[in-house]
Structure formats: structure tokens, C-alpha cells
């Protein structure tokens, strides 16, 4: 039972990590219809940016802010330089996806060239370790959950109650209609790339603190974000959150009795079975 509780808690923390990644990725995907795979290396760039700033002696919170800025700038730049020209030419969505893979390879290796090989760790970070009964966790774990609650909630409120946010939602629902009623979809897309990428910087910094950064950390991140979004339902923050937790919990609790050598496929076996039983997906897409 102790193990179950611990695994449950692990599932929650991983789930909130996946969910936050999914929220950012899903926002971009739902609004612009671009499968932005380069979300992964931008996530990695954010972690490296924070590491670089911190190693120059910048206080950690400021380094985090710097990481957010770097991610937002890279996200917007990838839209303006790559995706927009492709979309303007009326290419199908797959093309943007492949271009984003090209960008993925480019950025990941650029990181390797600039920062060299090996793990980047912020030394002498101290964070608290807690024991709640049999369950162990650290303050980073708590931050993972808190960041989802704060940022996810803020985004939810932003999309629901601000003019700008409503325009984004309108574009998510129907791009053509949004254009007809006078929404500047390019501006919205830029905003969405900025917000979505900025969101990814937060879990990136937390992972840097928890496990260190590597140039290839982006693949797993964008991969899980992608699966989270598809499981939860595209175009829905709530869906991404539910999808993220579902994925995190399945991955963690699934290994309660099953050997860990099956770790990377356990979530997919469950997904496979669920989707075969419920072909329309776990949750339909809904607004917000």
C-alpha cells in the first residue's frame, strides 16, 4: 500500500508536468493547426538558458524569467520564419509538421554545439525533501503541481474572460469565421506561439533543477505533450490537464505490479486498449 501511495503521488507530479506541457503544446496546435514538434528543443533551450544565466550568477528566479523570454522569442520566431511562409503558401498541415522536425534537428544540435555535450546541472541548489507518512516528495514536486494550477488556471481565465483570449478561442473553433469577424489571425498566432512556448519554459526550469538538462531532453517532452493533447482532446485546456494526469498516473501506477522494463510502453498499451474500446477518444473536444 505504501508503494501504491508513493506511485500515486509520483503519477500526480508527472501528470502535472505532462499536463502543463500539453497545455502549451495544445494551445498552439488547436489555434494554428500546427504540430509544433520544435516545441521540444525550445523547451530544452529554455532549460539551457536558465542554466546559462544561473551559471553567470543571476539569481534563480531571474534566470527562470530569462528562460521564459527565450522560449517565447524562439516560439514566435519559429512561427514567423518557418510556419507562416509555409501556411501562406497554402500547404497542408503535414508540411508544417515536417518543417518543424527539421527545426527540431537544427535546434537540438545547435544547442550541442553552443553548450557542448553532457548534462548541465545547477550546483548547490537546495530544495526541501518532505515525508508525508510513507510518501516522499520534494519542493520541486510541489512546484510542478503548483505551476500547473497557477499557469493553467491563469490561461483558463485569460482565454475565457479577456477580449484577446476570446479571440484566440474563436480562432480555435473556426479560423475562417474568426477572420470574417475581423480577428487578426496572424497576430493571434504570434500570441499563441509566445504564450505556449513561454508555458513550456516553466516545466523546463523545474526539470533542470530536478534532474539537470541535456540537449536531447526535448524529444520526450514534446512526445508526451503530443500524446497528452490527443488523449485529452484537442483544443481543450481541461482535456490536456485530464490527459496529462491520466498519462502520468497510468505510467506510474501501471508499474505497480509490472516490471519497470515495460515503462515506456505501459502507457501506450493502456492507451491502445482504451482507444480500441472507445474509438472516439477518451474525451471529446470541448471549448476550453
Amino acid at each position: 500500500m505504501d508503494l501504491f501511495l508513493q506511485l500515486f503521488f509520483n503519477g500526480l507530479t508527472n501528470g502535472s508536468y505532462y499536463a502543463l506541457l500539453g497545455v502549451g503544446f495544445g494551445l498552439i496546435f488547436a489555434t494554428t493547426k500546427i504540430v509544433h514538434f520544435a516545441y521540444g528543443p525550445i523547451f530544452a533551450c529554455a532549460a539551457y538558458a536558465a542554466w546559462w544565466a544561473a551559471s553567470l550568477g543571476v539569481p534563480l528566479p531571474l534566470a527562470g524569467v530569462f528562460a521564459v523570454a527565450v522560449a517565447a522569442v524562439l516560439g514566435v520566431a519559429s512561427f514567423l520564419v518557418i510556419y507562416r511562409p509555409i501556411q501562406v503558401r497554402g500547404a497542408p498541415g503535414l508540411v508544417a509538421l515536417i518543417a518543424s522536425l527539421g527545426l527540431f534537428i537544427l535546434l537540438e544540435n545547435l544547442l550541442g554545439i553552443v553548450f557542448g555535450a553532457g548534462n548541465k546541472v545547477i550546483e548547490n541548489v537546495n530544495y526541501d525533501v518532505f515525508f508525508l507518512g510513507p510518501v516522499f516528495f520534494t519542493s520541486i514536486h510541489l512546484w510542478q503541481i503548483a505551476s500547473l494550477a497557477i499557469l493553467g488556471g491563469a490561461l483558463f481565465l485569460f482565454l475565457r474572460y479577456t477580449r484577446f483570449g476570446k479571440a484566440i478561442v474563436a480562432m480555435t473553433d473556426n479560423r475562417e469565421m474568426a477572420e470574417i469577424i475581423g480577428i487578426d489571425t496572424t497576430r493571434m498566432a504570434i500570441a499563441v506561439f509566445a504564450i505556449g512556448s513561454a508555458l513550456s519554459a516553466v516545466p523546463a526550469v523545474l526539470i533542470l533543477l530536478k534532474d539537470g538538462a541535456t540537449t536531447h531532453m526535448g524529444f520526450q517532452a514534446v512526445f508526451m505533450a503530443f500524446v497528452t493533447v490527443v488523449v485529452g482532446g484537442i483544443g481543450s485546456i481541461r482535456g490536456a490537464v485530464v490527459g496529462g494526469f491520466a498519462l502520468g498516473l497510468v505510467q506510474s501506477l501501471g508499474l505497480w505490479k509490472i516490471p519497470t522494463e515495460w515503462q515506456s510502453s505501459i502507457a501506450f498499451v493502456v492507451l491502445f486498449l482504451i482507444l480500441v474500446a472507445r474509438p472516439q477518444g477518451l474525451f471529446g473536444a470541448s471549448r476550453l
Binding site: R89, I98, A99, I105, L106, E108
Partner: peptide
């Protein structure tokens, strides 16, 4: 040597992106 293969991959990614911007239909 130390950055050769990564630089080549950067170029590879660059060429891929460039082709798709230039010819989005493939």
C-alpha cells in the same frame, strides 16, 4: 571534430526547412 557532426545535422535541418518553405507541396 568536436562539433562536426552536430554542425552537419544543423545544416541538414536547415536544408529540410528551406526546401519546405520553398516548395511546401514537396
Amino acid at each position: 571534430v568536436d562539433i562536426a557532426d552536430k554542425s552537419r545535422l544543423v545544416l541538414y535541418g536547415l536544408v529540410m526547412v528551406a526546401i519546405l518553405i520553398y516548395r511546401p507541396q514537396g
